[in-house]
Design a protein around this nucleic acid. Structure first.
Lengths: 206, 206
DNA sequence: TAGATTGTTAATCGATTAACAATC
DNA sequence: TAGATTGTTAATCGATTAACAATC
């Protein structure tokens, strides 16, 4: 797009989206930045600045139409499209994510699961059979896979990420506890659970 | 402590910790901020500023002793202590976290699991029997529980969080997709997986 | 001692908040 | 029209980077 939106803004969008969905479900039609500000505990100024990064969604003297704003943010976040994803690593976490139905509701479609462990290959997760790693590249190419979820130990993660990079994968949702250095064309979103737990631990210690 | 450390700094500590552990395991004895800077792809300036929030860990002309720095960061993050935790919500994600052995290695000890679903109560997760929600408060008080991991749907999360607040819980690791508004004495660390996925989705869309 | 590298101050950059004119 | 509230510019605040004197 025109000028780059800062990641600080992007990080706040899902939270706006969540509140707007709730407002919408409870039948609220319009909301001012000030009301939303009280609800979300952020400044009204920030709300207006954030939304204005994407053009004017509001109307002076009225505020924002909840339904419209909800839909616009959905579009910005790419939730108006389908995203096919696979999960690599059929361990506890991988299976938990495969079974999480809410992702479907947002347009993220679970298409397949891979593992290198012969004991896991052939088992099923929500109707999908776990495939061997050898079939990874072909599957991605033939099934229009956009996102790979990495739920494998960090030892294997870097080489698997390189294999993903060599296919047409667009994004990696990385749960492996290691930094992936990939070309800028591939988006990596890290979820480092133990980092998060350590942050909590720090704050407890204070 | 003296002056408040910004959360931006705290968020970077686990990553430093991870790199230092690797350096340590590969037998590296000392490292300069510049070398670490290249490795981690952050500025050397930031590294020195970050460490100096906690006092001088380095030595002019020498750099930082890897082992010492590693231990110091562990202490800052509270990893030199044991932290007892329970998991509330014995669904896929809860069980996956209960089975994750690396937390133990860092001093986070899995002490118990709770659920309201009668079908899950009595089942075992890594040697621990899932308990009914009625026993929550007593168990927390009698077992010196510091952290509660919330892996339940958002509908129940707020009321459970209030119950946790009424016991002596110190921190909540919140995987429920809702904001918990609790007294400032209780630390809340959120892991909003779908927010993270939406961020990835946004970056793919660009 | 000379060289290296920290600790720390100063400069810059970016993000947040405040203010207010535009406008519905 | 008067009141409300946005969109947007300006001011502030905080975080990052640069620079360099202190010192090992």
């Amino acid at each position: 797009m025109e000028k780059e939106i800062s990641q600080a803004v992007i990080s706040r969008l899902p939270r706006y989206f969540r509140y707007l969905e709730e407002l919408r479900l409870s039948g609220v039609e319009r909301i001012s930045s000030q009301e939303l500000s009280k609800l979300m505990k952020v400044t009204a100024s920030q709300i207006r600045q954030d939304f204005n990064n994407f053009g004017g969604f509001g109307q002076q003297g009225y505020g924002y139409n909840v339904e419209f704003l909800y839909q616009e943010i959905a579009k910005i976040l790419g939730l108006d499209r389908k995203h096919n994803f696979i999960i690599i690593g059929a361990g506890n976490l991988g299976r938990a994510l495969g079974n999480y139905l809410n992702f479907e509701r947002r347009g993220f479609l679970f298409k397949g699961m891979f593992d290198q462990n012969p004991d896991l290959i052939g088992t099923t997760v929500r109707g999908t059979t776990v495939m061997p790693m050898e079939e990874l590249e072909d599957f991605i190419r033939n099934n229009d896979i956009e996102i790979a979820v990495l739920t494998i130990p960090k030892t294997g993660a870097v080489s698997v990420a390189d294999r993903l990079a060599s296919c047409n994968i667009r994004g990696i949702w990385n749960f492996a506890h290691v930094d992936l250095n990939l070309p800028g064309t591939i988006q990596v979103e890290n979820v480092h659970l133990s980092d998060s737990l350590m942050k909590l631990s720090y704050n407890l210690t204070e």
